[in-house]
Structures are given as C-alpha cells and as structure tokens.
Amino acid sequence: MESILAIAVGILVACAVFLILARDLIRIMLGVSILSNAANLLIFTSGRVTRDAPPIVPENVAVPEGVIANPLPQALILTAIVIGFSLLAFALVLSYRAFATMRTVDVDAMRLAEPPYPGQQVPSGAAGRQADRDPARLPEVAE
C-alpha cells in the first residue's frame, strides 16, 4: 500500500509546487495548504501503514497483543497538522493585509521590501486588482 501512497504524495507535491510558483497570492496559499497535507502523508507513509489496528491498548492489558499501527508518526503528524494550520492561518491573514495595503494580489507587483532596480520593469499590479466589485466593500488603502 505504501507504494501507492508514495506516488500520491508525489502528485500532491507537484500540484503544491506548481501553485506556489504562481503570481497570484491566493493560489500560493492554496499550494501551501496542499504542501502541508503532502508532508503529513509523507511522514505517515514512511512510518508504514496498517489497516484496522489503531494504536490503543485494550482495557486491563499492560501491553497490546498482536500488531498495531505505528504510534510514533501519528504523534508527530498530530503536532504537524496543528502547526501547519497555524502557519496557514497566519499566512492567509497576512496575505489579506498585504492586499489591503498594496491593493493587489499579484506578488510580482509587491516590491515594497525590495524596490525595483533602476530600469527594471515591474508589473503595475493591475492584473491582481479588483475590477468588478463594489468599491465600498474594498478595504481602504493604508498609507
């Protein structure tokens, strides 16, 4: 079963990388979300998978008999899921702030931290700008 999961993880990573390389900030966020799921599955698969044997010790027994699922990767992934979610939530809110400040989701046009070199042509950001929405619903530009 692990070999099938390994291929699935590879497909997920490929999708995530393609999304992360996008110009659109929101698509980058979607890519991060897929990448974090792929990473969890990768840890899960490398610890081997077992069907119908959760890592739980039955009542009144000190040590379980028979084969049970590997508990260690599960503990690691449980942490990773929560951390990954925190990261994504923070990144999403940050993206929203970036949009509110720069009024575009085109990362190529976000050049506040690294201003363009003399003579470097930078997109205006118009491509990532709202075109058809009610202006009153837009966040105001922070100075």
């Binding site: 900030l25 989701v105 997109p123 700008r129």
Partner: peptide, 21 residues
C-alpha cells in the same frame, strides 16, 4: 477551519484575477 478562513479572506480579495503566468 482552513476552508472557513480561506472563504473569509476570499470575500475580501478580488475574485476575478488576471495575474497569470
């Protein structure tokens, strides 16, 4: 929760985007 937050952000950023590669 992730989907909820994504939707909340989506409500505020432009839906029609032409910033394509």
């Amino acid at each position: 929760l992730t989907v909820v937050i994504l939707v909340l952000v989506l409500m505020r950023v432009p839906l029609e985007v032409s910033a394509f590669r």
